[in-house]
């Protein structure tokens, strides 16, 4: 129902801006834009069993311990897709958390070409929109990607 009731694009698109550099000729032709939380990993600030990693993040003057589980086959997946696609991670989470996480998932910057964070998203009716498409594209319509805003700092249900 949320998608059906979205406001007209023109009414929400006023503040968005391009956050990615243009594609280069050596990039793969198709771009694969991946969400992070609950798609590739599960993170929480509460201790969890079988965490694959734990790291500190400071937010608002408070240090949190982020506990991360990696989705099964994450490494297999990234290894397979980075050769075939321009891989972009686009998350509604805060950059301070997502950068630390991605630095650990992809320490050599091998798999993920670009990172986009909450700051790139448009807040619309309590959700964060991720607007994707080229103005120069021949397509007239433009896509919007929306994820819940509660992904910040992994402060969510465990």
């Amino acid at each position: 129902m949320f998608i059906k009731q979205l406001p007209k694009y023109a009414n929400v698109a006023i503040k968005s801006k391009i956050c990615l550099p243009p594609k280069s000729k050596k990039d793969r032709p198709v771009s694969l834009v991946l969400d992070l939380d609950e798609t590739l990993v599960h993170c929480t600030v509460e201790p969890i069993e079988n965490a694959d990693m734990v790291f500190p993040v400071e937010f608002g003057g408070v240090e949190y311990q982020v506990h991360v589980r990696k989705r099964p086959f994450l490494e297999y997946f990234l290894e397979a897709v980075y050769k075939k696609f321009e891989v972009i991670v686009f998350t509604a989470s805060q950059q301070v958390y997502a950068d630390e996480l991605l630095n650990r998932i992809d320490p050599e910057n091998k798999y993920i070409k670009h990172r986009l964070f909450r700051e790139s998203c448009l807040p619309v009716e309590g959700n964060y929109l991720k607007v994707g498409a080229s103005e120069a594209s021949r397509e007239r319509s433009e896509p919007i990607k929306i994820t819940h805003s509660f992904a910040a700092l992994g402060a969510r249900r465990t």
């Binding site: 698109a13 968005s16 801006k17 391009i18 956050c19 990615l20 243009p22 594609k23 032709p29 198709v30 771009s31 694969l32 834009v33 991946l34 969400d35 609950e38 798609t39 972009i88 686009f90 986009l116 790139s120 998203c121 991720k130 607007v131 994707g132 498409a133 080229s134 103005e135 120069a136 594209s137 021949r138 397509e139 319509s141 433009e142 896509p143 990607k145 994820t147």
Partner: peptide, 16 residues
């Protein structure tokens, strides 16, 4: 304007 600046014919988004 938008943030991705990619051709929609060549872009997929994966999200839960």
């Amino acid at each position: 304007m938008n943030v991705l600046d990619r051709d929609l014919r060549k872009t997929v988004l994966v999200d839960n």
